[in-house]
Amino acid sequence: MNSNSPKSYPNRLGLKGWVYAGRYTFERYLYLGHRLSGMGLIAYMVLHIIETANRMRGVEAWQGLMALFASPPFKVVEYLLFAAAVFHAMNGVRLLLTELGFFLGKPKEPVYPYSSSVMRHRPLTYVIMALAGLIIILGGSSLFFP
């Protein structure tokens, strides 16, 4: 057998590896948040398509649904959805910038103590997350205290 043939390493940690598999960094937890918020948003999108189809059942059915959405528990759900969307979008901007190679610094010789691209990128991460937090707080204030 050729010793240079690729060896497969199965994802043995599975879902547990999402949360902890050693010293995860801040960015790794953002990655977890991005996945969770993304799954929540796609679930909501599918539900939203089904729920807005209620219009085909007539005016009363539609108005009943809108009255339900105006109730306090749905306001809270709406806010959580808004927060998930803001977080996902802002972190997505960060990921896009990284994907396109922005804010990673120029490649340089690895001399100890190493300066990784993640660390060079981190100030931007903090700024983007602070902005996301601000938008989430402001959005909550307009939703709950109109």
Partner: peptide
Amino acid sequence: LLAAGLYHGLYGLRGIIRELP
């Protein structure tokens, strides 16, 4: 919006599921 949102979301979901063993 339907096409773009569903593609983006379901492709992301596919990536998450495909990462499992």
